[in-house]
Design a binder for these strands. Structure first.
Lengths: 106, 106
DNA sequence: TGAGTATACTTCGTGATACGATGTATACCG
DNA sequence: CGGTATACATCGTATCACGAAGTATACTCA
């Protein structure tokens, strides 16, 4: 997928990935893989950004000798997803505009 | 609309704006206004990028003492629009992923 | 006549951001 | 003991949207 098109989707996809169940970086990447590929550096950047925006909270858990950071979505994060749904309507309008055939030359 | 979401749409919207009839910068902005607001600096940046990518050609025409640059879409530009239609299918998958409700907790 | 507004294109600087490259560290498998 | 999977972090770079500011013409209205 075109990188520019991806940009607007990344944040919401990450939020959607933790929406129903807390998750951690590595797992989020695996879960999103079939839907939207993203690298580790990209993901961690996004997670930090979302945390700074209070859209998720972080909790560190020891797991098999390693530390895992579990991310939990907040009310603001859920709102962001709702906002995206509204924006999707605008996207549909734009899609219509882009794909409509011209009939004016008749 | 969220700026990140806009990014992936700008190029194709501009191409769509000249798809059926050659147009010029100022007019493109006015035509896109109801659908997608963009500033002059943004538009001209995009037009240059699309020209460099051979997605459109430019022709300067004198009009009322001023010069106007008319943009004409190329085959590559039309292909870009078709490509966008294909990407839209992926977008739909992502939209499904983001909006689907979790049923696993039953 | 002169100020304001619409038309029309251009350049510069800035901030946001995706991502490859690289690094650190543990566990497991052969 | 080397390779691979897991898991997180940082740095540098390239792309890009956009506000600000500039240049120039034409029309309107007082």
């Amino acid at each position: 997928m075109d990188i520019q098109l991806k940009r607007g989707l990344l944040d919401v996809c990450v939020l959607a990935a933790i929406k129903n169940e807390d998750s951690y970086g590595y797992k989020i990447i695996k879960d999103l893989q079939p839907c939207l590929a993203l690298s580790e550096s990209t993901l961690y950047t996004i997670l930090k950004r979302l945390e700074a925006a209070n859209m998720l909270t972080v909790r560190t858990v020891e797991h098999g000798g390693r530390l895992r950071k579990y991310y939990h979505i907040t009310a603001a994060g859920l709102s962001r997803i709702e906002e995206f749904k509204a924006e999707w309507q605008e996207m549909l309008d734009i899609y219509q505009f882009v794909t409509k055939e011209d009939a004016s030359h008749d």
